[in-house]
Design a protein around this nucleic acid. Sequence first.
RNA 1: GCCUCGGUAGCUUAGCCUGGAUGAGCGGCUGAUUUGUAAUCAGCAGGUCGAGGGUUCAAAUCCCUCCCGGGGCUCCA
Length: 653
Amino acid sequence: MKKLQLLFIHSDYMEYEAKEKTRVAEPISESRKKERVEEVLVVFIAVEREDEKDVKYMVEKASEEAISVFHKVGAERIVLYPYAHLSSELASPERSIEILRGMEEDLLSRGVEVKRAPFGWYKSFTLRCKGHPLSELSRKIKGREGGGAEAEEVEVEKLSKALEAEEKAESHFFFMDTGGEGGLIRTEDFEFELDKRDNLQKFFVYESEKRRAVDKVPPHVELMKRLEIADYEPSSDPGNLRFYPKGKLIKALLEEYVRNSVAEYGAVEVETPIMYSTRHPSLKDYLERFPARQYSMAGKGGKPDLFLRFSACFGQFLMSKDMSISYKNLPLKIFELASSFRKEKRGELVGLRRLRKFTMPDMHTLCKDMGEALKEFKKQYELCMRVLEGIGFFTKDYEVAIRFTREFYDDDANKGFIDELVRIAGKPVLIEMWDQRFFYFVLKFEFNFVDALGKASALSTVQIDVENAERYGIKYVDANGEEKSPIILHCSPSGAIERCMYALLERAYLEKERGVLPMLPLWLSPTQLRIIPVAERHLEYIEEILPVLNGIRTDVDDREETVSKKIRDAGRDWIPYVAVVGDKEVEKNTLSVTIRGESSKSESKGEQRQKQKVEEMDVFELKNRVGELIKSKPFRELPFSYKLSERARFVGG
RNA sequence: GCCUCGGUAGCUUAGCCUGGAUGAGCGGCUGAUUUGUAAUCAGCAGGUCGAGGGUUCAAAUCCCUCCCGGGGCUCCA
């Protein structure tokens, strides 16, 4: 089978000059010996081994690849540069020249300006690489097995693409289902549920790339502004948002909820610094592996000296290293609600989904050995499910990914463990298996939310870390008095708080598309109950019943507007309970309560109205009903005046 | 970071292609209306047209640079 090695360098310019012939030199005219080409995509090429039948195919594929990179980086011309050093198994010179010439012709015929450096000459060259992230790329083109029939071409092409992707990632995707025996199901053998939107499929597509282009602002971005939750802050670094009172309230409630959940689970809460010295030896190691994403601050002499943490790992590891820990203390769980900073690339930032400053619940668990680590892993897997459920996400709302190294899965004892995780999920799961361990972990899972645009992002995650205890010198003393390195679990039970908010908003949008009235979970709704007086004279009655509703975020629309207008505004604010008070209610000592969660929306061209579920009840009944639904969740008072007339707007429209 | 699309009043936007005094709706303010389940009526105020530079007699409009946002690529400890 023939292969083609390609190395692309997007350059400001390239100059080359043919100096001396080798044995295999192609004859060339004097004018082709020396060239200078500007704004160029340089394609270094080595053709490997030999298969005469496949020349045409190889030329075509290689040209396609070159064209695709050419357009992607926006180069103006192409230089084809034979570069034998890319391979140790070169094809014959004849075949190589044939392919190079073929590519030259092919590219010319597609209207690209092409120069081909002479084959078989010793050449001098200079080029200046542009140095943007895509300016250096390499590709391998594989020939068809045996150079077979044309009919197979499509199939083969797909396969070679898949192979290529795998080679790059050095990992393999599978699915696993709940049906007992389970085992790994190859992705091509797996049947997605055909009904409804299959998020697992979307998630897999997202993970294995091939995304469709969407030219739409993500729904949650508009919602976060319109609902006065959060907004961009142009005067800060991108990805550092401002949160309005409603957003701050929701965020604070979520934080409190997650904090309570891990405390109940047995974690101790700590607080560690948000910035660290780049000179610390353990941190240095880490940083060198991931240099690009730090917010760093200049120290003496203008050199970066401090960096902002991108997770709570450092602080907690450094703390753990100084502790004295007995095996009796294990598993030891340390938790922090950590403001974290990652200088993500500009183009990766979106609304509340991906930020440069975000709030990460981060729990680390020190375990005495792998057995204990696995036991904890499973418990935390279940903890994560419970926490998400409390926030309002059920298994139908997220997709489970379990990832591990081949080595981990080769151990038969671990196979059953993975099966058990799938069984707990109760639905098919995406599996990724790495050929080697590239990071510090051998096993991790995430719960991924798939949004309205088909993009997936991780909420909860747990990872088993086999590397950092040693790196940071974290030790415990075992029953024999010997010092040992623990295994560390990293767990974020909910994922970033902002990301939970993003997911809640995106989900509400998706629900709306399905004809359901969008809303936030009751305990997170900034206003849980709005009371609307029909006329000013009803305000007195409202003031009388208000104290009963203590413990429920209740506000009163005392503005001089029509009842219709107030109802509409309450709807636009997604308020779960809206109570109207007029003469009738005052007389009967009741409230007419519209319950959003039980009302329905009617789509279509303005003709039909939504069906509102209105119930008449007295204030105690209402109080009990709402109170019952929120009693197990954190509560905060309204973050502004209960009278709408006194409230300032944070955003217009 | 690269490619690409966009930025006009607090918000949503018309005008831009084809250069010739920024127009509207919502919101705000004032007045009238005291209202029964998805927008009451009228009036008023509100704009260095993202910033800077250039072309032109003349720039929101054409060109360049930068900033901010969306999408794609890439990446995600």
